[in-house]
Amino acid sequence: MTEKSNPNRDTVNTVLGPVPAGDLGVVAVHEGLLSVVPGAEYAFDITIDRAVIFETLERKLTEFREAGGGTVVDTTGMFHGRDVRLYEALSRSTGVHIVASTGMGPESNLGGYFLTPQTNPPTPWPAEKFADLFGREVAEGMVVPRVERRGAAGMVVTATTPEGRTPTDESLLRGAARAAATTGVPVSIRPGADALADLAIVLEEGVAADRVAVAGAGDDALKIAEQGAFVVLTDVEEVDRLVEAGHAGRVLFATGGVAVSIGEEAPAASYAGLVAGLPADVTDQILIANPAALLAVKGA
């Protein structure tokens, strides 16, 4: 094993700083800790109590640690509830490593600032602008609005419009891929109507397939694993299918839920349940080895 590929030397960006990939333990690799629909904080019928949010997340993370868990990766990205200071406090309180992400998407989740630069006619942001925005959150730290930058993002995430990729979605895919390729962190995509085509765009930007995680791939999961990318699954039967096909090394397992969701209904995440959700013979591979390989910053 070369020094570069040694998981005990490779590091992962957590909210409290770099951690050796070999120290992550069991990883809940594609989760939503806190999801807040943009604008929900202004709704008359919604109350956001930060103390209650902290207590809820602290309980879920403590249960996860007591069940054998070690790390949670929050893939909500920018402007959808990500709270870096909250994650720092939770990590210190519970002893669970937290990896936060940069990125955004699909187009419907973006504000007008990103969709209508001053051009005639208005056009989506080009990929290089998204790449710079996301890359800086890895290289310089994640932005706490109007305050400062905090710890480095450990993953770049984006998503495509479910009904089909828009020009803005393509800019997001290419920008996320370029940021990942430049900084060495992995990229995660939630594809739309054509998962294979969305993956192809990311790979066109020079990202190696084993640096990509694809969530919600549906019937294309096997084909994506055959291309060498990681597939995020939430169903044990689907895990069994890919393992039997010889792709245990490309499977990631997630709860498919959100720990605290504000402004929309979402399945509740139980991170502790994730630990016992897989057959024992593949647990180490899928919950420990595969996430560590994906999350390790290349070139760190």
Score class of each variant (00 low, 15 high):
M1A: 15
K4A: 14
N8A: 15
D10P: 00
T11I: 15
T11W: 02
L16E: 12
P18T: 07
V19S: 04
P20M: 00
G22Q: 05
V27E: 03
V29G: 07
V29K: 00
H30E: 05
V37A: 07
P38E: 07
A40L: 01
A40R: 09
E41C: 04
Y42K: 15
F44I: 10
I46M: 04
I46C: 04
I48R: 07
D49H: 05
A51K: 12
F54T: 13
F54E: 13
F54R: 12
E55A: 15
E55M: 05
E55K: 13
E55Y: 07
K60L: 06
L61A: 11
F64V: 09
R65S: 14
E66V: 14
V72W: 01
T75M: 10
T75P: 01
M78P: 00
H80N: 11
H80Q: 14
R82V: 11
D83E: 12
V84I: 15
R85D: 12
R85F: 13
L86E: 09
Y87S: 15
S91L: 10
R92G: 10
S93A: 15
G95I: 08
G103P: 00
P106M: 06
E107L: 03
S108P: 00
N109T: 13
F114Q: 07
P117R: 12
E128T: 14
K129C: 12
F130P: 01
F134G: 05
F134K: 07
R136F: 06
V138L: 06
A139R: 11
E140W: 03
G141F: 03
G141A: 06
R146G: 15
V147R: 15
A153Q: 05
G154C: 03
G154W: 01
M155D: 04
V157D: 00
T158H: 01
A159E: 04
T161C: 05
S171Y: 00
S171P: 00
L173K: 08
R174K: 15
A177D: 03
R178D: 05
A179W: 01
T182I: 01
T183C: 06
P186N: 09
P191I: 10
A200E: 15
A200H: 13
E205N: 11
E205K: 06
G206D: 09
G206F: 05
A209I: 06
A213M: 03
G216T: 08
G218Q: 01
L222F: 10
K223D: 15
A229P: 00
V231N: 02
V232D: 13
D235N: 13
V236W: 09
E237W: 05
E237Q: 11
L242M: 08
V243D: 05
A245N: 08
A248S: 13
R250W: 06
R250V: 08
V251F: 04
T255L: 02
G256H: 03
A259N: 04
V260K: 02
S261D: 03
S261K: 02
P267Y: 05
P267H: 06
A269D: 00
S270F: 09
Y271N: 06
A272Q: 04
V275K: 04
A276K: 02
D281M: 02
V282M: 07
T283E: 11
Q285C: 14
I288W: 04
A289W: 01
N290T: 12
A292C: 11
A296V: 09
A300E: 15
